[in-house]
Design a protein around this nucleic acid. Structure first.
Lengths: 332, 332
DNA sequence: GACGATATACTCGCTTTGAGTATTACATCA
DNA sequence: TGATGTAATACTCAAAGCGAGTATATCGTC
C-alpha cells in the first residue's frame, strides 16, 4: 500500500503536540477538541488495535472547523492517513477532565471513537503498527486459561490496596470490587467489565500512567504495556463496548473477510471476548439467527474435513432490527 | 422549594444565547462546549422530562474552564439551579454538526447527558416545567394501544415520502425502514427504536425542526410538540438509551420513591417502555433477580387487597455485576 | 487403510419464558 | 352482612432456549 501523506502524529510526544495546539488557541478561554480512535482488526486470531509511537498512543487528531461533523472528521483523517476503508464507526465517550488540559486557561475535549476494519499489510511508518490489545491488558485474555500473572501479581497487589484502605468499610468495598470484577470466590468471570478492572487497577496504582510526572527512567510497567495519557483507558472503553456489542448486534462481520468458515468466525469472536466458546452451540446460534449464507464452496485449509464457506447476509441489517427484549411484555 | 439563583436559561431563545457566547470566544478558531441534559422523572405513571422555554428546550448550559470534568460541570449547574439531587447520570452523545454552529468560524460541541431523578413540586420559574415526553413523541406510547395518529397521519405521510424516492431502490429501502421501525406487516414493535423512528420522520419532513429558517407563524407542528434546534432528537436519544438500559441494569429504582409496591414499579417501567407488561411474569422477574426486599409494611392505597411495600436492595449494585451473556461460552 | 484433525449432525435434560387459571384480601355499598 | 369490585399473590403448564454432550462425515498424511 502507498505511504501516507504524513504520519498520523509527529514523532514528538502527544503532550508536545497538545502544547503546540493549545498555543494556537487565542486568548483566555481556550477549548480545543481532539478525536481519538480505537481502530480494531482481528488477524490470525488476535484482536489488534492501531497504535502509534511504538504502541504508546492511539491515533488522534484535531477536530477542525472545516469538518462536517465529528464522525466525518474522524473518517476523513483516518481514511486519508491509513488508506483504510473504515466500516463500522461508533462514538465511545467524551472526556474533558481537568488534568487532561495544560493549564487553567486551556481545555481539551477528547471525543473517542471505536472503528472496526480489516488489517492491511502496509508500508507505512514503522511507528504506526497493529498491536494485540492484550499486550496492553494481558489479564483480559482467558482463552488459554486464567493468565498466571493474575494470581501471581495482580491479586496480591490488589489485596495490598484493599488492606491499605483508610477505614474498614472502604476496605470491604475494595475487596468486594476485586472479587466481582475478577470473578473470585465462585463468582463468574464477566468479560465485559474491562473498564471496571482497569479503573480498579488504576486506583490501586498498578497502572503506571496513574503516577504523573514520573521520570522516563522508572522501571518497566507493572502490568501490560502502558500508553500515554489516558489512551489505555480509552482502549479499555473500546474493548468493553465491543465485547458488549457483539452479543446483540452483528458487528463481528466488519472484522471478517468476505467469505469465511464458521470456525474462523468463532475464533474472531473468541479473540474479542477473550474466552472460548462451545463450538456446536456457537454454530447453532449463528444458523438460527440466519446471519450467514453458504457460498457453495469449501475451504481446504482447515487441516481436517473441508469446511463450508459462508458470507454475511448484509440484508439482515435492514430486514430486522436485532435487539433482545428482557421485559415480560404482554401480547394481548 | 426555594427559587433558583437565576433561571436555567434567559427568556430569550436558545439561539440568542449561543450568539452571545460565540461572541465571547476569541479569534477565528472558536470552539465552545455546551452541556445538554435529558432529566427524567416518572410521576403518576407519566415519564417526564425537564424542559424550559414553555417546553421548547432542554436545559443546557456552557461547559466552563473551572469545571473539574464534564460530568461534574453538569451536576454543578443542574443541582444549583434546580436544587434537584441528581442521582444517576450517564453520558449520551456528543454532537458537533456544522449546522449547529453559527458561522464558518464558530463551532459548538454539545455533550448530552441522561439524568434520572424524582420530580419535585417547586416554585420555580414557570418556564421551567416537567412535561410528559410523549407530548413530544406521541407515537412512542403504546400503553393504551396503538395511537390512532400513527395510522391516520404518520403512515400516510411516510408512505408519501417513500413514493417520492428518486429511484426504486431507495423507495424500497424507505418502505422497509418504515415497516421495521413501526412494526408493520407482522413485524414486532420494538420500543427501543426511538431514534430510528425520529430520524425517519425527520427525513420525511414530518419534524418541523427539520425545516430551517421557517417563520414562527407557520402552522402547528405535525406530530408532537417540537423543540428548538435538535433538542427533540436528543430527547429521543435519551429515551432510547433508557428503554434499553432498564433491561439489563436496575436504574428504574432511581425514579422510584424509597418504598413502593410491585405494581407501582411495574407502572414506572411501563411508562418508560411505552407498553404494558405481564403482571405475574414481571413479579417473577423482579423476585428471582432479588432486586427488592420487603419492608414489612403494607400499602392500603391500592383499592383492592393491600400490597406489600418493597425497597430496592442497594447492595445488589456492588454485590454482582448484572450483565447478560448471549455467547455460548464453554465452561470446561 | 489406519490415524489425526476438523466439520457437521443430532440428542437430551434443564432452565427460562409466555400465557394463563386460581385463590386471597381488602373497600364499598346495597 | 354478604355480594361485588379491585387488586395482590400463588400456582400451573407447555414451548422455546440453552448448556453440554455423543455420533458421524470427510479430508490429508503416513
Amino acid at each position: 500500500m502507498s505511504r501516507p501523506e504524513r504520519s498520523l502524529q509527529p514523532q514528538a510526544s502527544g503532550i508536545r503536540l497538545r502544547e503546540t495546539r493549545a498555543a494556537a488557541i487565542a486568548g483566555g478561554h481556550g477549548i480545543a477538541a481532539d478525536l481519538i480512535a480505537v481502530l480494531v482488526a482481528v488477524t490470525h486470531g488476535d484482536p489488534r488495535v492501531l497504535t502509534l509511537q511504538d504502541a504508546r498512543a492511539l491515533p488522534s487528531g484535531p477536530f477542525e472547523l472545516e469538518h462536517r461533523s465529528l464522525q466525518s472528521g474522524l473518517r476523513a483523517w483516518v481514511e486519508r492517513q491509513t488508506r483504510h476503508p473504515l466500516g463500522y464507526v461508533e462514538q465511545l465517550y467524551t472526556f474533558a477532565d481537568r488534568d487532561r488540559g495544560l493549564g487553567p486557561d486551556q481545555r481539551f475535549i477528547s471525543i473517542s471513537y471505536l472503528g472496526l476494519t480489516r488489517e492491511r499489510v502496509e508500508g507505512v511508518d514503522c511507528a504506526v503498527s497493529w498491536r494485540s490489545w492484550y499486550d496492553h491488558l494481558p489479564w483480559e485474555d482467558r482463552r488459554t486459561g486464567i493468565p498466571p500473572m493474575i494470581e501471581s501479581m495482580l491479586l496480591p497487589r490488589l489485596r495490598e490496596f484493599a488492606e491499605a484502605a483508610p477505614d474498614l468499610a472502604t476496605g470491604h468495598d475494595r475487596l468486594n470490587r476485586i472479587a466481582v470484577t475478577f470473578g473470585l470466590d465462585g463468582r463468574p468471570w464477566n468479560e465485559e467489565l474491562v473498564l471496571q478492572r482497569y479503573e480498579l487497577m488504576y486506583e490501586a496504582g498498578l497502572i503506571p500512567e496513574a503516577r504523573r510526572n514520573r521520570p522516563e527512567s522508572e522501571p518497566a510497567p507493572l502490568a501490560g504495556d502502558s500508553m500515554i495519557l489516558d489512551h489505555r483507558r480509552i482502549l479499555a472503553t473500546g474493548i468493553a463496548r465491543l465485547r458488549s456489542k457483539i452479543k446483540y448486534h452483528p458487528v463481528v462481520f466488519e472484522l471478517m473477510p468476505e467469505t469465511f468458515t464458521l470456525l474462523q468466525l468463532q475464533r474472531c469472536v473468541e479473540a474479542l471476548a477473550g474466552r472460548l466458546l462451545h463450538k456446536q452451540n456457537f454454530r447453532r446460534l449463528i444458523e438460527q439467527q440466519q446471519l450467514v449464507e453458504e457460498t457453495g464452496t469449501l475451504s481446504q485449509e482447515t487441516g481436517g474435513r473441508p469446511a463450508k464457506l459462508f458470507r454475511f447476509r448484509r440484508d439482515i441489517l435492514t430486514e430486522r432490527a436485532i435487539v433482545g427484549t428482557k421485559l415480560p411484555i404482554s401480547r394481548s
